[in-house]
Amino acid sequence: MGFKISLALGAGYAAIWVATSVLSDGVTAIYALTNTAGDPENGLLVLRDSSKASCLICHNIASLPDRDQGRIGPALDGVATRYSEHDLRLRLIDARHINEKTVMPPYFSTENLFRVGQKWQGKTIYTAQEVEDVLAFLMGLED
């Protein structure tokens, strides 16, 4: 059946409610990482923040005016039409659960990483709330 997801949560996140369940199609889904609903406006700020490995380094979102958007990954326009919220959250948290060799950084995992720089050790790229906020913004990108 589906594979199990284990999240390495920093001590600071210990109180956060995380639940996993196996869907019938074998894909593990993760419910919201926090009790506060994602804020799409803040999500856009986080997504653009170059100090937080901005999605725009690799992805393009045509509806944004930002110059110099990347073209490494697929464009994110219409992404909410292509993926469910669960699947998108999973990709944000750690896309390795979908493709082991992905070039997409794991935004909310500290597991199985090699030689993480001292400054970043034990830290995730996003906080749990940032994952939810960015997700809320992405869910607005419909075709």
């Binding site: 490995a53 950084p105 030689r115 970043w120 790229i125």
Partner: peptide, 13 residues
Amino acid sequence: KTKRGQLNLSCAD
């Protein structure tokens, strides 16, 4: 070819 760092990318990536 070894993926490394918080962003988990290799030189080859």
